[in-house]
C-alpha cells in the first residue's frame, strides 16, 4: 500500500537531513501513529507521500503510484486518492460547512448530482448533520476538525493523512476525533497520523513508528508512546 525505500530528504536550506535513510511499509487498512520529537521529520514524511516534496534519495510508493518519479501531470490523481487533515483545520471561512466539503469535490470536477448525494452522507458520518449551513467561525474547534475530516474523506480516499489533528483540541474533544478516525479506518481506509499526544497513542494501542533526527528508531505493531524513557 505505502512503501518507502531508503528515503532521505535534505531541504535546500539545511544541512541536517529531515529524513535519513527511512524504509517503512504500511498495509492497506492499517492505523499507524507517527511519533517523535519536534523536528524529527514527521511532517516531512507525510509531505513526501503527498508529493508536496520529492525525496533527495530513495523511492516512495503509494498504492500503485511511484510518487517520487511520477510526472507532475499525474500528481492530482495521487492526491485525489489521499485525504488530508491538519492541526489548523484549513477551512474556507467564506463557505458553509456543506460548501467546504462540497468544494473538495467541485474542484476535481465531480458532477452536481453526486455532490448533493454524498455531502450529506459524509456530514452525517462525522456527526455534523444539522450544522451544514453554519460557517466555520460558528463552530467549536472539534466541530471544525470534523468538517476537515469530512472534506478529507468525502471522496473515499485510500489513505487518510492526519498531521497532529488533535494538536489544537482539548483531551475530550481529541478523544471524539480519534473515535471518528477509527471509524474511518474501519471502512478499510489506511490512516497515518503524526502526533505528540501520549494519551491517545497509549490508549489506542496501534502500530507506532517513531522518528528521531530523521531516522526510524522504533516500529511497534501495538505500541505505546514512550516505552522505558
Amino acid at each position: 500500500m505505502i512503501r518507502l525505500e531508503h528515503v532521505s530528504k535534505v531541504y535546500k536550506t539545511s544541512t541536517r537531513p529531515a529524513l535519513d535513510d527511512v524504509s517503512v511499509e504500511m498495509e492497506k487498512g492499517e492505523f499507524v501513529f507517527l511519533i517523535g520529537p519536534s523536528g524529527s521529520g514527521k511532517s516531512t514524511f507525510l509531505r513526501l507521500l503527498l508529493r508536496e516534496e520529492v525525496p533527495t534519495r530513495g523511492r516512495v510508493y503509494v498504492s500503485n503510484f511511484d510518487v517520487a518519479k511520477m510526472s507532475r501531470r499525474r500528481v492530482p490523481r495521487l492526491r485525489q486518492s489521499i485525504g488530508c487533515v491538519f492541526q489548523d483545520f484549513r477551512l474556507l471561512p467564506t463557505k458553509t460547512v456543506a460548501e467546504n466539503v462540497a468544494f473538495a469535490l467541485e474542484v476535481i470536477g465531480k458532477p452536481r448530482n453526486t455532490i448533493v448525494k454524498v455531502v450529506p452522507e459524509v456530514l452525517q458520518l462525522v456527526g455534523l448533520d444539522g450544522k451544514e449551513d453554519r460557517f466555520p467561525t460558528e463552530l467549536s474547534g472539534g466541530e471544525q476538525q470534523r468538517v476537515a475530516i469530512a472534506r478529507a474523506f468525502v471522496n473515499r480516499p485510500l489513505v487518510l493523512i492526519a498531521d497532529e489533528p488533535t494538536g489544537n483540541l482539548d483531551p475530550d474533544t481529541s478523544q471524539d476525533i480519534m473515535l471518528l478516525l477509527e471509524r474511518i479506518n474501519r471502512t478499510g481506509t489506511t490512516v497515518i497520523m503524526a502526533t505528540h499526544d501520549h494519551g491517545i497513542v497509549d490508549s489506542m494501542r496501534r502500530r507506532v513508528v517513531e522518528l528521531s533526527f530523521g531516522k526510524v528508531v522504533r516500529d511497534d505493531a501495538r505500541g505505546v508512546y514512550g516505552v522505558g524513557r
Binding site: V75, A104, V107, G109
Partner: peptide, 14 residues
Amino acid sequence: EVGIMRLVGATRWY
C-alpha cells in the same frame, strides 16, 4: 483556497 484545491487533487486547469 488554491492551497486546498491542490491538496484535494484539483488539476492545474482547475
